[in-house]
């Protein structure tokens, strides 16, 4: 019990004291996960919408694949990206291993399926409602896509937040491809793992509390984005 009280006390004092190392780590965590989120949204919304609105042989298989990949183990993604980016691997010449770029790549691979799978479902459900309307007006596919994506925007914000949550919370992939290098690739989750392995459980827990607070802030901003956009739409 003492650990919990100590952890909360530490978490507050770390944040309030403006610990430079801590803010560097928080900033990098946000940079990596938000960039991965942006990349994943561009790819995932696109893939999800295309699959939702088109009919082709093997479509069921693609949907099952998307849904399965939502459960990709981070450590496996880390391993695959490591093998690709290692100097001995096919993309080794890029020299990206142990850089934030490698971490962004790994997290993008991890969360793109989540965003594609969830947005596919949302867009498809919405499209069912609009289908007859589109057909009666003979709307071209790309216009239909844009219209459905726009109308689904509130739900898609939630999808993006789900992707962000997965990215900011994972440790397995960034540990392997980033290497948890101090002042270079150390993010919140790898810092927590490090402090746990040093047996400094209070500090590890304190960092966990800070991480949750960051996630909460991002989610609150996402929600307010939703409601602000909603108000404007009905004004």
């Amino acid at each position: 019990m003492q650990d919990f009280a100590e952890a909360f006390r530490l978490a507050f004092s770390l944040v309030l004291s403006g610990d430079a190392d801590l803010f560097e780590i928080i900033w990098l965590s946000l940079q990596v996960s938000l960039t991965a989120l942006l990349i994943s949204c561009v790819i995932g919304f696109g893939l999800g919408t295309v699959v939702a609105l088109s009919r082709f042989p093997g479509r069921g298989g693609v949907i099952v694949l998307f849904n399965t990949l939502m459960g990709l183990p981070p450590v496996v993604v880390g391993l695959l990206v490591y093998l690709a980016l290692s100097r001995a691997g096919p993309l080794g010449v890029l020299g990206l291993l142990y850089t934030p770029a490698a971490m962004i790549i790994a997290q993008s691979i991890l969360i793109t399926p989540i965003i594609a799978a969830l947005s596919r479902q949302i867009v498809e459900d919405l499209f069912c409602e609009y289908d007859e309307l589109f057909r009666s007006l003979t709307v071209p596919l790309h216009t239909a896509m844009a219209a459905v994506l726009w109308d689904a925007r509130y739900s898609l914000i939630t999808v993006a937040l789900a992707g962000f949550g997965r990215a900011i919370a994972e440790v397995g992939a960034v540990m392997i491809v980033g290497g948890n290098i101090d002042h270079l690739t150390r993010v919140m989750t790898t810092a927590i793992a490090l402090e746990t392995s040093k047996g400094d459980l209070s500090l590890a827990l304190a960092l966990g509390i800070v991480l949750l607070a960051i996630s909460m802030t991002v989610n609150a901003l996402g929600l307010s984005l939703r409601s602000t956009a909603g108000r404007q739409a009905y004004a």
């Binding site: 900033w27 990098l28 946000l30 940079q31 990596v32 938000l34 960039t35 942006l38 020299g95 990206l96 850089t99 934030p100 770029a101 962004i104 270079l184 690739t185 901003l221 307010s224 984005l225 602000t228």
Partner: peptide
């Protein structure tokens, strides 16, 4: 407020993308 949020997010992303090559210094 919303604009600030968007600007901050974009700043983080841009920093994320540009940090990548520079860090292999």
């Amino acid at each position: 407020m919303m604009r600030m949020v968007v600007v901050a997010a974009v700043a983080a992303v841009v920093a994320g993308l540009s940090a990548a090559p520079a860090s292999a210094s």
